[in-house]
Every structure is written in structure tokens, then in C-alpha cells.
């Protein structure tokens, strides 16, 4: 229901705005809905607002069911690229 995509924070401005980048497309987004934002963070953008900060790859916990599945099929531990 809600189109949101990951983008990277380039610059944090002082008016609750941040410049974000999506593969060469740059725009300002509102930082009103998140806390502890840092330059370089990957964040989720929905309609011009940052709605969440993404967890780093190495900090992720995959579902046990999928861990098992990928181990069984020899497709590696981490489910995603």
C-alpha cells in the first residue's frame, strides 16, 4: 500500500530536512519522523519523508526457516545480496 524505497543520506540540513540520493536522483526529504540520523545512512523514503533507518546488513537476523532453507540448498547463509 505504501510505495517506499531505500535511498542514502548525503547531507543533513538544519531545518529538519536532509538531501538524499537514489542512484543519481537527489532531493530533499523531511527528517521529522526519525531520530539519530547520520550522513551515509540508508533510509526508507515514503512520499518525501524518511520513515525508517535501515539496519546494516551484518546486523540482520534472518528468519530461522530461511537460514535453514538456504543452508540446505547451499545458497549461502544470508538470504539477500
Amino acid at each position: 500500500m505504501c510505495l517506499a524505497i531505500p535511498v542514502q543520506v548525503k547531507e543533513i540540513k538544519n531545518n529538519n530536512r536532509a538531501v538524499v540520493d537514489n542512484n543519481g536522483v537527489n532531493f530533499e526529504a523531511s527528517t521529522n519522523l526519525v531520530e539519530n540520523l547520520k550522513v551515509g545512512d540508508f533510509v526508507l523514503i515514503h512520499a518525501g519523508f524518511i520513515i525508517e533507518i535501515l539496519t546494516r546488513d551484518d546486523a540482520r537476523e534472518k528468519l530461522a526457516l530461511l537460514e535453514e532453507f538456504y543452508q540446505k540448498t547451499g545458497r549461502g547463509k544470508n538470504g539477500r545480496e
Partner: peptide, 12 residues
């Protein structure tokens, strides 16, 4: 192109 794709993702 990369930027066209990026915009498509953003605005659907």
C-alpha cells in the same frame, strides 16, 4: 538509464 529507473522507483 539509471536515473530514469531511480525516478520510476521513487514515484511508482
Amino acid at each position: 538509464d539509471k536515473e530514469v529507473k531511480a525516478m520510476c522507483d521513487l514515484v511508482g
